[in-house]
C-alpha cells in the first residue's frame, strides 16, 4: 500500500483550517506564557498573506503527552504575520536544544515545508540537528528575543531563505 500524495491547501484554507484558539498552545492565563511571532515572505520578498503556520513542541520539561497540547496553528494576515502563544519547550531527549517543529502551508506549495525554531538565548551548542546545518545558514533557524517573546520570520525563497528540512 502506498501513501496518498500531498496537494496544496490552495487559496481558501481559511474556510476549513483556522481555529479560534489555534494560536493558543496554552490558554491565556497560563503562567510563563510567551508570544512567538513572525512573518512569511516569498522569493520576491513580498509577504505571503494566505499561508498557515503550524507548530509542534515539547512542554517545559521536554516531554510530550496529555496535559500539554503542544500544537499551535495560525493563518497569516495580509502582512504575512502570524503568532502563537506558548510555553518555552525544554531540552528534548537529553541531546537536543529547546526547539519547535514548524510546518508552513500556502497556496503555491504543493506540499508543506518544514523548519525548526531554536532560541537565541538558549545553549544551542551540540544540538545534533542544528549541527547538521551548514554554519552560515543556521541563523535562519534561531528566533530572536522580542518585547513579549520571540520573533521568527520565514523566507520561503530568496537571499535569506530559511533552512527547510526533509522529514
Amino acid at each position: 500500500m502506498s501513501t496518498t500524495p500531498s496537494q496544496t491547501v490552495g487559496p481558501y484554507l481559511a474556510i476549513g483550517l483556522p481555529w479560534p484558539d489555534g494560536p493558543d498552545v496554552v490558554p491565556p492565563d497560563t503562567p510563563g506564557r510567551i508570544r512567538i511571532h513572525g512573518r512569511v515572505f516569498d522569493g520576491a520578498g513580498d509577504p505571503i498573506g494566505d499561508a498557515m503556520i503550524e507548530t509542534w513542541q515539547a512542554d517545559p520539561d521536554g516531554k510530550f503527552g496529555p496535559g500539554f497540547r503542544g500544537f499551535g496553528r495560525c493563518p497569516t494576515d495580509a502582512e504575512g504575520a502570524w503568532e502563537i502563544f506558548t510555553l518555552k519547550p525544554g531540552r528534548v531527549d537529553g541531546e537536543q536544544a529547546p526547539h519547535i517543529d514548524v510546518s508552513v502551508f500556502a497556496r503555491g506549495m504543493l506540499n508543506r515545508t518544514v523548519t525548526r525554531i531554536y532560541f537565541a538565548d538558549e545553549d544551542n551548542a551540540g544540538d545534533p540537528v542544528l549541527e547538521s546545518v551548514p554554519e552560515a545558514r543556521r541563523a535562519t533557524l534561531i528566533a530572536q528575543p522580542a518585547d513579549d517573546g520571540y520573533e521568527f520570520d520565514v523566507h520561503v525563497q530568496g537571499e535569506r531563505e530559511t533552512v527547510f528540512f526533509k522529514v
Binding site: 515539547a58 510530550f64 528534548v92 497556496r107 503555491g108
Partner: peptide
C-alpha cells in the same frame, strides 16, 4: 509533487531553492 512545478504558476516564488536538510526522526 515537486515544490517547483512550472505548470502551477504560484509555485515559482513559493518553493525553497536551497537543498533540504535531512531531519532525523527523533521524539518531536
Amino acid at each position: 509533487p515537486p515544490m517547483d512545478y512550472a505548470g502551477y504558476k504560484s509555485t515559482a516564488l513559493r518553493h525553497p531553492k536551497e537543498p533540504l536538510i535531512i531531519l532525523p526522526h527523533r521524539l518531536t
